[in-house]
Design a protein around this nucleic acid. Sequence first.
DNA 1: CAAAATTAAATTGCACACAACTTAATTAGA
DNA 2: TCTAATTAAGTTGTGTGCAATTTAATTTTG
Lengths: 148, 148
Amino acid sequence: MTDQLRIEKQLCFPIYLFAKEIINYYRPLLKDLELTYPQYLVMMVLWENKKSTVNEIGERLSLDSGTLTPLLKRLEKKGFVERQRSEKDERVVEISLTHCGSNLKKAAEKVPEQLIDIMKVDQEDLETLKHLIHKVLRNKNANELDDY
Amino acid sequence: MTDQLRIEKQLCFPIYLFAKEIINYYRPLLKDLELTYPQYLVMMVLWENKKSTVNEIGERLSLDSGTLTPLLKRLEKKGFVERQRSEKDERVVEISLTHCGSNLKKAAEKVPEQLIDIMKVDQEDLETLKHLIHKVLRNKNANELDDY
DNA sequence: CAAAATTAAATTGCACACAACTTAATTAGA
DNA sequence: TCTAATTAAGTTGTGTGCAATTTAATTTTG
């Protein structure tokens, strides 16, 4: 009974640990690009879309303005993005890539394979893991909708 | 080629997201106990061991003194733990549970099942996920040892 | 035994992450 | 239409998480 509280029994601790560990593997690779992991996520959104609002980025990455506003200011300071108020709706801030930010994509394309080299995990296990997490997240969302 | 950088293709984003999401599910449950998730992890270590050094807790949870020292001071302030220098080795700080911290275990024992109720994920999927992450972490460690 | 190396915590500084709140702009509705 | 509700970002405050450094104590070694 009481050993339900043992860390090993818990479902979340390994995931919490694994997430931290992955980010630690990214750190040295991203340092070369002058990016942190969350900044890298934002850049990936922009490399896909060229231009996004703070809201859109937040929805995509599950981050709120309290996290994104200062993060985007840091990316602006580094010269990777531009922030400017929408003319149509003054509440909205549009984030777009600078030349420098666009060019960074080339270097970033090498990151995924570098990561796999460094992490030394079985590629097949990772694929299975990814599918399973997708499934769990998808099912969870579906179950939540049942409440309404 | 270039779509290797799409967020969906990456292995890490779902894990990063899932880890955050789990902690968000814990938040309201742990708020009743006046604990954050990392504080809850530390308390779990102590509920198992009664007394640990900062180092031991850090090894168990993969956290360094830069994270633990202020966290433990907050737990001390809440009256859940006591911190005192070892007499044998003055460098070491021993962390032990107060009465209040020990008593908190009863309430904490309800957390795991509450979490499962709230999260609405398939129990079987979670078990598979846990096993797989354990396997990946274990293999990774084994592979790293090969380097020496 | 004394200097050098190692070790354990603490400190400093930076960057998330999120709750709660504020401000300004837009939309909805009586 | 004009006020009330909603929305988008920003701000403030707290708590991690980690790199880099510091301080003090203990070991190791010459």
